[in-house]
């Protein structure tokens, strides 16, 4: 019996295929970023040692601010796209999906901006 080989053209890139790749490549990056963050803040330092002075000390170093910026950008984008994928399992109508996508874009931009402003502004003096 001869083997039948069927070739198919590679489909062109679209938003979904880019999002699919983003989830995997950002995932590789988030392993050191998130696990490093959890190991340092939750296990080594611990929440009982964290306060405003600790954050101020940490953010005095530009390296940690860049680390936290990368964490904010990649982790939150990965999370919001994940919510979108789960949401599209439940919402099938084109109108519902449009609403979901716009709501998530607004959510994503707002929360990222809040975190980004705080990262640039730094620790304020408590009253």
């Amino acid at each position: 019996m001869s083997e039948v080989i069927r070739t198919v053209a590679k489909p062109p890139e679209n938003f979904e295929s880019k999002a699919w790749k983003f989830m995997r490549y950002s995932g590789f990056l988030l392993i050191p970023l998130v696990w490093g963050h959890v190991l340092l803040q939750d296990i080594i330092v611990g929440v009982h040692q964290i306060d405003l002075d600790y954050v101020a000390m940490r953010w005095a170093s530009i390296g940690w601010r860049i680390y936290d910026t990368a964490l904010l950008a990649f982790a939150f984008a990965h999370g919001v796209n994940g919510i979108r994928q789960v949401g599209e399992d439940f919402i099938h109508s084109p109108r519902g999906r449009r609403i979901l996508n716009w709501a998530l874009i607004i959510f994503w931009v707002t929360i990222t901006a809040i975190g980004g402003i705080a990262l640039i502004g730094g620790v304020a003096k408590p009253s």
Partner: peptide, 17 residues
């Protein structure tokens, strides 16, 4: 949790108390 955590961390700048 990440959403809540970004907001509470941003309070170091917006609302330190």
């Amino acid at each position: 949790f990440l959403t809540i955590h970004i907001i509470d961390t941003s309070w170091v700048y917006f609302a330190p108390n």
